[in-house]
Design a protein around this nucleic acid. Structure first.
Lengths: 326, 326
DNA sequence: GCAACGATTTGACTTATGTCACGAGCGATG
DNA sequence: CATCGCTCGTGACATAAGTCAAATCGTTGC
C-alpha cells in the first residue's frame, strides 16, 4: 500500500492535535490548510486507527459479582453488564463492552481467532479502530450464508479491517452434505493448514449458540428444526464454532459435527485467552455447558446471567473450569 | 486504594462518552448531573489513564532515512524527528515522540527500566497517561540531586504515576566517595536484589550523556570538570546510566565507574528493547559509542543526527550492532 | 484541449465543549 | 454549634469543534 500524501498530512494533523495538544486552528495554521480540513483529517485519523481512543473496562470487572464469578468458576476475568435503570440497554452495551475488552486483551504480534454468530457480528460492528499491524485475525469456522448476512468471513474481515490487522479467511463451507466430503475437504492442504494454526492463537472470540428452533444454526439452514430437536434429545445443549456440544461441553459425535468444517474444539481449548460473550438470557444452559467444557477464560455476561451461573455452580458444587492446555 | 464513588461516576461518564459516543449533554442526562461536571469528569478520566488517547508514531518511522539507519546499524526501529520548517521545534518534539514510542513498546505485565538525565526527565514530563496496571517501572541508576531536580527516582516515579504502573525506586546514591563503600553498598541485599532484576526488564529508556564541562554528571557534581576532562583523555566518550563508556561503548575501569551504584552495563545490554533518545547535536560521539556498545535497539534522533550517524557508519565500514543477549 | 467527474478544500454557520466564579455540602476544629 | 476550609457541582459565558453546500483542484476520457 503506497503512502498517500493525504495520509501523511492526516497523520501530522493527528500528531499535532492529539500528541501535542494543539488546537485545531493552530494545527491548521502550522500545516497551512483550513481548520475545516483539520477537523476532517482528525475524524479520518480516528477512523483509521492512527489515533486510538480506548476506555478502560475496569468499571465492569470491578464488581463483587465479577470477583465471585471468577473465584467460583475459575475464569480469569469476567465483565458484568449491569441491568439497573441508570445503565444503558444491556443488549446495546454488551457488544461495546466485549469489543473494548477484547481489544484490551490483544497484544502486539498476536494471532487472534474469531468465530461466528449474531453476537460476534455485533461486536465486530462496534469494534473500535486501532493500529494493530502485526496482529493476525483468523477465521475459526467455515462459511455459511446467514439471513442477516453475518457470515464468518465477514466477522473476521470486519474485525481485521478495524484493527488494521491482517485477516485470514478460509473458504470452505461450514457444513457439507456428506461426511466423506467434509473429511476430504478437511484433508486439503489449504484447509488443513489453516485449521492447524488455530491452536496457536493467543486469543479467541466467540459466543455460544442455543439449540432452539430459532437458534442461529437452524435459521441459517445448517440444520433443520427437527434435526436440531433430535440432537437435543441426544444430549446436545449448545453450539461452539458451529459444532454441537453436550451438557459437559464435550464434542458430540453426530452427523452434523462430522460434516462440519470448523476449528477443532480441543484447538480452541488450547488457546490461552478464550473470550466468551453471551447476550441472551435464554442461553443459560448453553453457557453452562461452554463453561464446563472449558471454553471461557474470559467471560462477558449480564448481571442476571452471572447470578444464575453462580447459583447453579454452587448448587451443583462444581469446581473450577480447567485452564488452557497451552 | 479504595474505590471512590467519584471514580465510578467518572468512569461511567468516560465510558458513555468515549466508548458509546454519546454527547456530553446526553451523558449528563443519563447520569443525572450537569454537563459541566461531565466535562470535568472526562478531563480527569483522561488524566487518570482511564481513557487513553494514543497516536501512532508511524509518521516518524516511515521514512527512508529511518529505514537506512535500521538497515545499516542494525537497530530494530528508528524514529526520526524532522527539522524542516513545517515541523515543530525538534527539541520540543522529541520528548513527545519518545514518550509515545516508548508507550507503544510497553506490553502488559512488562518490567521497564528508566535511567536518568535531562532528556529522560523531559520525556517523563510529557508521557501520556495510561492504564498500565501490572507494569513495573524500575530505576536503573542510583540517585543524585540535580540542579534542575531531575533526580533518577523522580524520573521513575513520574513515569510510573502517569502509566498507573508500579514504580520501584532504589535508594542509594549514584556515586559514593570511596570504592570500598560503593562495593559494600552494592552488596547490600536490598540494593543487590534490585540491581539483579534489571536484566529481567523487557524495555529500557535512557539517553547517552556527553563528557563536556556542561555535561550532566559535571553539573550535578558527580565529577568535577577537570576530572571529567582527564577521563576524556583516558578514553571516555559518553555516559550511560551514570557510567563512563569508551569509544566502543565499553565500560571503563576507572575510579568514577567503580564508585557508581547503577545498572550493570551488561544487564542493560541484556534487555531486549533498549530505547535510546538523543536530543542534542553535540552528543554525536557519545551516540556513536552507545550504538557500537549495543545500547540501542530502538533509537530516537533528529534528521541531521541520523545523517551524521549514517555517514560515519558507512565511512568506517561498521557492521550491525549486536542484539540483546536475552 | 476541454468537458465531466470525483475527491479535496474551504467559508460560514451550528453545535458542542471548556472554563470559571460562585454556592452548596460536609467533615474537622476550637 | 458556629466557623473554617475543603471538595464538588453548577449556570452562564467564551471558545472550540463539527458540518455542509459551494468552490476548487486534479484526472480521465473523448
Amino acid at each position: 500500500m503506497p503512502i498517500r500524501n493525504t495520509d501523511q498530512i492526516m497523520h501530522k494533523a493527528a500528531w499535532l492535535y492529539y500528541s501535542h495538544g494543539l488546537r485545531q486552528d493552530e494545527v491548521a495554521q502550522k500545516l497551512e490548510i483550513s481548520r475545516a480540513s483539520v477537523a476532517t483529517y482528525l475524524r479520518r485519523a480516528r477512523e483509521t486507527g492512527i489515533v486510538n481512543i480506548t476506555t478502560s473496562t475496569e468499571l465492569f470487572t470491578d464488581d463483587v459479582l465479577a470477583r465471585e464469578l471468577e473465584d467460583a468458576t475459575g475464569v480469569t476475568a469476567a465483565w458484568i453488564v449491569p441491568e439497573d435503570r441508570q445503565a444503558m440497554d444491556p443488549t446495546a452495551e454488551m457488544p461495546v463492552l466485549a469489543a473494548s475488552a477484547f481489544l484490551e486483551l490483544i497484544n502486539k504480534g498476536d494471532r487472534v481467532g474469531v468465530a461466528w454468530g449474531r453476537t460476534v457480528y455485533h461486536i465486530a460492528d462496534v469494534m473500535p479502530f486501532a493500529d494493530l499491524r502485526g496482529v493476525t485475525v483468523v477465521q475459526l469456522c467455515g462459511n455459511l450464508g446467514a439471513p442477516y448476512s453475518y457470515r464468518p468471513d465477514q466477522c473476521t474481515t470486519e474485525i481485521a479491517r478495524r484493527l488494521n490487522a491482517e485477516g485470514i479467511n478460509f473458504y470452505a463451507p461450514l457444513v457439507l452434505s456428506s461426511e466423506r466430503l467434509a473429511e476430504e475437504l478437511r484433508g486439503e492442504p489449504v484447509i488443513r493448514e489453516q485449521l492447524s494454526t488455530i491452536a496457536d492463537c493467543h486469543l479467541a472470540l466467540y459466543s455460544v449458540g442455543g439449540i432452539e428452533d430459532d437458534s442461529h444454526l437452524v435459521k441459517c439452514g445448517a440444520l433443520s428444526a427437527s434435526e436440531m430437536h433430535r440432537m437435543g434429545e441426544e444430549g446436545a445443549v449448545g453450539v461452539i464454532a458451529g459444532q454441537l456440544i453436550d451438557g459437559d461441553g464435550q464434542w458430540i459425535n453426530c452427523a452434523h459435527n462430522r460434516r462440519c468444517i470448523s476449528a477443532d474444539l480441543d484447538s480452541i481449548r488450547a488457546i490461552s485467552k478464550r473470550m466468551l460473550v453471551v447476550q441472551e438470557d435464554s442461553k443459560f444452559e448453553p453457557l453452562m455447558a461452554a463453561l464446563k467444557g472449558g471454553f471461557a477464560s474470559h467471560l462477558v455476561v449480564t448481571t442476571s446471567m452471572a447470578r444464575r451461573v453462580m447459583d447453579r455452580w454452587r448448587r451443583d458444587g462444581l469446581g473450577k473450569v480447567h485452564a488452557a492446555t497451552a
